[in-house]
Design a protein around this nucleic acid. Structure first.
Lengths: 246, 246
DNA sequence: AAGTGGTCTAGACCACTGA
DNA sequence: CAGTGGTCTAGACCACTTG
């Protein structure tokens, strides 16, 4: 039974979501059974299930086959972080593009041997004339394979990696630290060596665990801080609570 | 038609996912229509749709009503970050619990007036005898409402907030920066004032945009870095590509 | 007008949980 | 054993996109 064009399953979703958000029902409480909801909303079981599926995907509830649906435990320590290498709006000057022999750090990060060469791409990112960020990327150098244009021109990992494999076949790990710059980096960022920098280490990992790339990005305050938001991500585990019928 | 007990819709999911991960079909390509998939997998339309729904939720494809399903554009700049206030495994010593008048920073963060009092909770987190982190939290002080035990004992925002409203009715914003410690903080962390610290600012926001709490956490290198992972999150927008039939 | 995805129904069989 | 969620089917009507 639709009201005002909204699909029935969305009505069910927002209705139940409201009960949860308002604290009317709480983590661990049991929802009405599918059949009860079918009667209540005068909808088919498929439609009710579609609504419940959405609530489960969004982490508000979880299903326990044979027992029922339960309100989940909210998770408040998972965050969505946006971190892009796309520096649109900034001025980029390349300081170095080289083929080098990797040092220990890079060997370990890329899981390669000392004799495997690596492409090194350095960039300085400026806001006007003021340098605000410096980044270095390392990409395994496949002897014989020509250096692709993306590597030099964009120096953006996703594009480089996509050019070397399928666009969905890799993911990334980040590590965020606070560090003081080396003298070299302080000079490049024209800051003093006691300016605290936000440093992000990034590893690009292929489908089979192979390392596609490794990079470091140094940011001064003026570049901006990293921002993250806790979406609504919740505990799906069913072992945590003693279910209670509401 | 089930093979080896796996539900048909999951077979469809992994089959199509494989085509995408391997680069057999690429972002912008059109998938077979639902009806074609029904014939191909000898399943009902509902079952095929269930599989496609999952692929859409996971960001591999998107649906364009009237046209078809398309392979999505992967997003590689969204990350999942874990940041917890739960310091299990560390030693916690409280240095201060006060009711104070908020300064400008706190007034703005909590969106309150200077005459509204605020509970201030400071903690020093130690690894053995070595202090590795210091955090301060501010919670609006409701005159009349007694200070709840969670505020003092746990000083963990989710618990405090859950005690004051429904456990699902709030979310958090983070801001991550690199800073040098003030003399006070350097003393508390027994480090020099030129030790770069990772600082996380956190705002707890209620359902109606009201501020439930505000906190800062200072971390030295020994506390550990922040780690994040790019899950598989992809562009759902349909306007980006020229659809192509594969 | 033909094809596409979006919504919805009524009914079926299964495996699991709990009394 | 009755009740629960998990899977699946065949068929219907709709709005949208394309020729």
């Amino acid at each position: 039974m639709r009201i005002s064009g909204e699909p029935v399953y969305l009505t069910i979703v927002s209705h139940i979501k409201k009960s949860i958000m308002s604290g009317q029902i709480n983590p661990g409480d049991m929802l009405q059974s599918e059949n009860e909801l079918v009667s209540f909303y005068k909808a088919s079981r498929v439609t009710v299930r579609k609504g419940l599926q959405i609530l489960e995907n969004e982490g508000f509830i979880y299903a326990w086959p044979g027992k029922g649906y339960f309100v989940a435990q909210p998770i408040h320590d998972m965050f969505s972080l946006r971190f892009s290498e796309d520096e649109s709006g900034y001025d980029i000057s390349y300081s170095k593009i080289n083929v080098i022999s990797p040092n220990k750090e890079i060997q370990q990060a890329l899981q390669i041997q000392p004799n495997n060469k690596v492409i090194e791409i350095c960039r300085v990112i400026k806001k006007g004339i003021k340098p605000v960020s410096y980044d270095i990327k390392y990409i395994p150098y496949d002897k014989g394979t020509p250096i692709i244009e993306e590597e030099i021109h964009y120096a953006v990992f996703p594009k480089i990696a996509a050019a070397k494999s399928a666009p969905f076949a890799f993911h990334t790990n980040l590590e965020i630290t606070a560090e003081l710059p080396s003298e070299t980096i302080a000079k490049l960022l024209s800051c003093s060596i006691d300016t605290p920098l936000l440093v992000v280490y990034r590893t690009f990992i292929g489908q089979e665990g192979n390392r596609i790339g490794y990079g470091k990005k140094y940011m001064i305050k003026e570049y901006g801080s990293l921002k993250a938001t806790s979406g609504y991500m919740y505990e799906r585990s069913r072992s945590v609570h003693q279910p209670q019928r509401k």
